[in-house]
C-alpha cells in the first residue's frame, strides 16, 4: 500500500524534527558528519517511522527488522532517529563525542540501544547484512535486513564481495539503500574515483535495482513496497540525495562531510531547515 498523504505529512514532521536535532547534536558534539546525516534522513525516517517492525521498549525483539548503517559515519543521524523513536531520551545526545560517552561518531551496538551492528569502517556493513539475512532465512523468520550504503563506500572491494554473495544466496529479505549524494570527503565521487554507471553495476551483480529521489517520501515508500514484494534476490534502492539536505549553505558541499557549528551558523542552519518545512 502506498503511503497516504497523512503518512507523508507525518513523516515530513519527523524529518523536520530529526534534521533540527542533527544540528543541535552537532553543536553538543563540537562537530559531526552533518552532510551525510542530512542526506540519509528521509530514508531513515521512512524506515523507522513507517516500515520497520521495531519495539523501542524492547530493542532486542527477536523478530524485529534489522538496519545496518554501513555508512557508519551517519551515526549522528541514526542516533537522533533512535532517540526520536523512543529508544532513549534526547538529552543523552548532549554527551555525543564527549570523553566516556556511549555515543561516538560511529555508533557502538553494545552501548546504544537500537543499533543492530557497530559500523564505521566503510565496506563492512553489507557483509554483516548478508549474514543477518542468511540467519533470518535459516531461522525461517520473516524479519528483513535493511542496509544503508554510502556512495563513496562503493569504492571498497568488500562491498562487491558482499553484493555477489547476496545474489548468490538469493537474499530477497535484504533491502539496500544507496545514499547517492555524489560526494565523498575529497570531492565529487566521479572526480575522485568514478562510480558510474552505478545502477548498472548493481544490476550486473544480479540485484533488483530501483532508482528514486531519496528525499521524496512517496518514491521512498513505493520503492520499499516493491523491494518487499520482489522475490529471488536482493534489492538495491539507489536514492539520489543531496548532501547537507535541508540546510541551504551545506547542500551539495563536500566540505560539510564533517564540520562544527558556531552559534551563528547553527541558527542559520535551523532557520534554513524551518523554512524548508514551511515552519519559518
Amino acid at each position: 500500500m502506498p503511503l497516504s498523504n497523512e503518512d507523508i505529512v507525518k513523516l515530513k514532521e519527523k524529518a523536520w524534527s530529526i534534521r533540527r536535532m542533527i544540528i543541535q547534536t552537532t553543536i553538543w558534539a563540537g562537530g559531526g558528519h552533518v552532510g551525510g546525516a542530512l542526506s540519509q534522513t528521509d530514508i531513515l525516517a521512512a524506515l523507522y517511522f513507517h516500515y520497520m517492525k521495531i519495539d523501542p521498549k524492547n530493542p532486542g525483539l527477536e523478530d524485529r527488522d534489522r538496519l545496518v548503517l554501513s555508512k557508519g559515519h551517519g551515526g549522528i543521524g541514526l542516533a537522533v532517529v533512535l532517540a526520536e523513536a523512543g529508544y532513549y531520551k534526547d538529552e543523552l545526545l548532549k554527551d555525543f563525542n564527549h570523553t566516556g560517552s556511549s555515543f561516538g561518531m560511529h555508533l557502538d551496538k553494545l552501548k546504544v540501544p537500537g543499533v543492530d551492528a557497530s559500523t564505521g569502517s566503510l565496506g563492512h556493513g553489507l557483509s554483516i547484512s548478508v549474514g543477518l539475512a542468511l540467519g533470518a532465512k535459516l531461522k525461517k523468520a520473516s524479519w528483513r535486513t535493511y542496509c544503508i550504503l554510502g556512495d563513496g563506500e562503493c569504492g571498497e572491494g568488500s562491498i562487491w564481495e558482499a553484493a555477489m554473495a547476496a545474489k548468490h544466496f538469493n537474499l530477497d529479505n535484504l533491502i539496500g539503500f544507496l545514499d547517492r549524494n555524489m560526494l565523498c570527503i575529497d570531492g565529487e565521487t566521479e572526480k575522485v574515483m568514478a562510480l558510474e554507471p552505478l545502477t548498472d553495476k548493481w544490476k550486473s551483480f544480479g540485484w533488483n535495482t530501483i532508482s528514486i529521489d531519496g528525499h521524496d517520501f512517496a518514491q521512498i515508500g513505493d520503492a520499499i513496497e516493491k523491494a518487499k514484494a520482489f522475490t529471488g534476490g536482493p534489492t538495491m534502492i539507489i536514492a539520489r540525495t543531496v548532501k547537507g539536505k535541508g540546510v541551504e549553505y551545506m547542500e551539495g558541499k563536500a566540505a560539510w562531510h564533517y564540520g562544527g557549528l558556531d552559534s551563528g551558523m547553527a541558527e542559520k542552519a535551523l532557520a534554513s531547515i524551518d523554512r524548508a518545512y514551511g515552519k519559518a
Binding site: 557483509s127 547484512s129 542468511l134 572491494g157 554473495a165
Partner: peptide, 17 residues
Amino acid sequence: GIAEQNLFGVGAGLALA
C-alpha cells in the same frame, strides 16, 4: 567464494542473528 573480507563479515552477521 574467494572473498575473505566478506567471509568474516557474513560470519559476524550470522552471529548477530
